[in-house]
Amino acid sequence: MMLWAIYKQTLRSRRMSWIIYSAIGFGLLLMYIPIFPAIQAQQATYDQLLNSMPKALLEAFNIGKSAPTLMGYMVAKHFGFVWDLMIILLMIAYSGGAIAKEIDARTMGLLLSLPVSRLRLYLVRLAAGISGLAIFVIVSELATWPLAKAFGYITSLHDIVRVGLLGFAFGLAILCLSLMVSAAVSEGGKVYAVMGGFLLVMYVLNIVASLQDKAADLKYASLFYYFAPGTVIDGGHLDPKALLVYAGISLAAAIIGALIFVRRDASV
């Protein structure tokens, strides 16, 4: 009961950002899906454009060569770039507010004066973040399926689920990493700065690895390398390695974050 009350309070206090991001995600689906037939009709131009671009560049920016299908088109237009950026922003904003900002605003003092262990409080914050991420993925990605049906397009539910699962795993890793940073600092702004810098480095590593053969192995160190929805659509399967990497990062970051939060001083 007590944890449920905190869980509900956490979701409630962040509900505006969940609603706004999910609404924007859904709105983008509504914007892209109806114009799919027009894109299909210009397939030859699209193919020509893709063929003129270096393969490495296409990989670096998550652009697959499967535009003829709805999901191929959606990955090229949305799920391969804007959607994951939305996931990143949503997760970092949530995490910054979940711990560090509460310490800064002193509201953490109210929570810590209640009979709830810090570990449980951390886990509740994590669970609320996971719930928010799941809602976002359902509304902004899995909703492609009913929308496609509504517009009379034939598309693979498996593809939609695989991309959704990949996005969820990616978001979970970002959530756990940013919550870990949030547990260590006392200002929301520091979480955004640290995670922003970290993800920028990750992104640059992936781009450099894609463009320079000598630095090809650097891609394995980048979170973005494993987020390849274009490959999921082209290959017709989700690489379990990507899920394992994201799951491993999430687990490690969650454990470290919980340890930091349990042991730290919280001057409130």
Partner: peptide, 15 residues
Amino acid sequence: KKLIGYVPAEPNLYA
């Protein structure tokens, strides 16, 4: 903390 009530110097409330 089940047995303790706490009143801080500066209120730590949600705005």
